[in-house]
Design a protein around this nucleic acid. Structure first.
Lengths: 190, 190
DNA sequence: CCCGTTCTTGACTGACCGGTCAACTACCCG
DNA sequence: CGGGTAGTTGACCGGTCAGTCAAGAACGGG
């Protein structure tokens, strides 16, 4: 399963064949189809794998204030991406973003699956954003839910741009910190 | 060519075959390969088509102040996306973002081509951001070049999320306006 | 020990992929 | 009108794709 995730991440869903998936898992094709209904089922399982890993990492973001926790979320994403960068030698994109861009208009089932993950992700952000709002850490007029989505979108966009330009992953977290600071009350920004 | 752009946009690069491309253009396969070296050449041409259309639209963004022009850029992107939404019945993604996510790790030639487009796009943003900085419209500590990239990333991310969740395109421009306002000096925000 | 279930195997299928090619036609320039 | 070039055609190629299947092996409970 981890092998499959690696293959999809380093290339693309369509570019990785079932034969290749089987070879990576040292399993023969017949056995593969005994456990999976089809190739897209593997994608679903890979998405679930990444989702639990992501949510686990995000939930670990701690800090005395919501503002600190917000920066912790940004660091969590940065860490994931620098991790991929180390393993693959370059920024290879977000597992969800890659699949979403490739398959959202093609495979309705995977689309909803990915939308679900994004919603959970955004929810994690929103929780902390609302805490920040409650603590009065957010600038006047900043809606916490819209900020949560902006952060998620920023992460996706920065990852995509870094991948396309083959830039270092370090810039991703930096951009997220920028965005957070821009929405924090004066004096709270790092 | 426009037919090809439509096909790639509504589905994905890999999902559209050369045969289909030929059928849409009412051309036989042999003729196709007389004009194009291969399928990826079509993608390049499609990218160029979208690039000129985008840059043209962005350059049309006018306004007395740089702040207004910034909002004009956001509207330009919003208009493009609502246009796609009308034509396809849903948000289908950014022509560049879609291809980048799918092919950046697979086709080095297309990757650089897309990186080039993104750089030009970011450059258009940066010009206006720097004007805003010169006019003193930007908040203290806001780097215009980093803001330009944040805007581009935000656009890409919002489009991807809207596509994945099949949400209306209207939210994309709204999010960009939010982001711009968050970086504008108090009193300038709309 | 037997039998049913779970799992494994590798050969196989039919569709489709991007790309090639030799023959043919249309057109333009001298 | 002759000949070279640009464009056209459809049959064809080898390779790959996701998925199938009949046969058998391994296992586990009664």
């Amino acid at each position: 399963m981890r092998r499959a995730a690696r293959l999809f991440l380093s290339r693309s869903y369509r570019d990785v064949g079932v034969d290749e998936l089987c070879a990576a898992a040292e399993v023969r094709k017949g056995s593969f189809y005994h456990f999976f209904a089809g190739k897209s089922d593997v994608a679903k399982a890979v998405i679930d794998l990444h989702t639990t890993a992501l949510l686990d990492r995000l939930s670990r973001a701690s800090g005395a204030t919501a503002a600190e926790r917000l920066h912790g979320l940004a660091d969590a994403i940065g860490t994931i991406q620098t991790g991929f960068e180390e393993r693959f030698g370059r920024v290879v994109g977000c597992p969800f973003g890659n699949l979403a861009a490739e398959l959202a208009t093609t495979d309705e089932d995977l689309r909803t699956h990915l939308a679900n993950t994004f919603a959970q992700w955004e929810g994690e952000f929103a929780t902390v954003c609302r805490q920040a709002a409650a603590e009065g850490a957010l600038r006047r007029g900043v809606d916490p839910d819209r900020l949560a989505r902006a952060l998620l979108a920023q992460a996706q966009g920065q990852i995509l741009l870094a991948k396309t330009a083959t830039e270092p992953a370090a810039g991703i977290a930096a951009a997220l910190h920028d965005l957070i600071d821009a929405h924090l009350e004066e004096g709270l920004a790092t």
